[in-house]
């Protein structure tokens, strides 16, 4: 009936809880493949880097395994790569969460903590305002984070969300998509985004 969707290669970094990520792909009819091997990450058609603990722990693990270079190459080449939560953050230069730790530096900017006047962590559903023509449409997404990229970085298209001021809730360039929210936990809207991205399609557009 349907053409088989491309498989997804999910990067394990040792500390991530993958059950929700893998279950979401299976619901979409996509077979997830899990790896920690940088060469597999280089060869794979589509790669996901799920949210993983703290910025410092995630970077340490990426460096130990050699995944840092493999992921950077994919991002620079604009090859299909999906980074979630801390996955978005490690693409940046640095984070206030782990002073002195260098990120992958693919996205210019430093990740900073939310201001004290709002609830931290940001736990729950918040509005994502996305410009048309990208892999996601505007809607509500589920967030679980204490840190975020407070500005839209140069060279990337950004979706914006407000929690104590605007921050970049998603970034894309070529087939690289990075989300601060968790699409695998964002109900039908999140599954819609995953489905769009894995097919390399543009979101239908218009607000939900």
């Amino acid at each position: 009936m349907n053409a088989r969707l491309p498989d997804i290669t999910v990067v394990v970094t040792g500390v991530a809880n993958l059950a929700s990520v893998l279950a979401a792909w299976r619901r979409l009819g996509v077979t997830p493949h899990v790896t920690e091997d940088p060469d597999e990450v280089r060869r794979a058609d589509r790669v996901e880097l799920p949210g993983v603990g703290s910025f410092g722990a995630a970077m340490e693990r990426l460096r130990e395994t050699g995944l840092d270079a493999a992921l950077s190459e994919r991002v620079d080449a604009g090859r299909p790569t999906l980074a979630i939560c801390v996955g978005l953050q490690v693409l940046c230069d640095a984070s206030e969460e782990s002073p002195g730790v260098t990120g992958l530096g693919r996205v210019p900017g430093t990740v900073a903590r939310f201001p004290d006047r709002v609830r931290v962590p940001q736990f729950g559903w918040n509005r994502v305002e996305a410009p048309a023509g990208g892999p996601l449409e505007s809607g509500y997404a589920y967030f679980a984070n204490s840190y975020r990229l407070p500005v839209a970085p140069a060279g990337w298209t950004a979706a914006i969300t407000d929690h104590g001021g605007p921050f970049a809730s998603a970034l894309w360039r070529g087939d690289v998509l990075a989300c601060q929210f968790h699409p695998e936990l964002s109900g039908a809207w999140g599954l819609g985004m995953l489905s769009c991205w894995i097919r390399g399609e543009v979101a239908p557009g218009g607000d939900r």
């Binding site: 809880n17 059950a19 279950a23 619901r27 679980a144 968790h182 695998e184 936990l185 964002s186 999140g190």
Partner: peptide, 28 residues
């Protein structure tokens, strides 16, 4: 398997191992 929203699980969690077992099963 059927849920696309966050799931919290509690009751009888005493250790990191208990937590891991529930997270591996699909709790967030």
């Amino acid at each position: 398997d059927v849920l696309s929203i966050p799931l919290t699980v509690g009751g009888g969690v005493r250790s990191v191992d208990d937590a891991r077992r529930l997270l591996d099963a699909g709790a967030d």
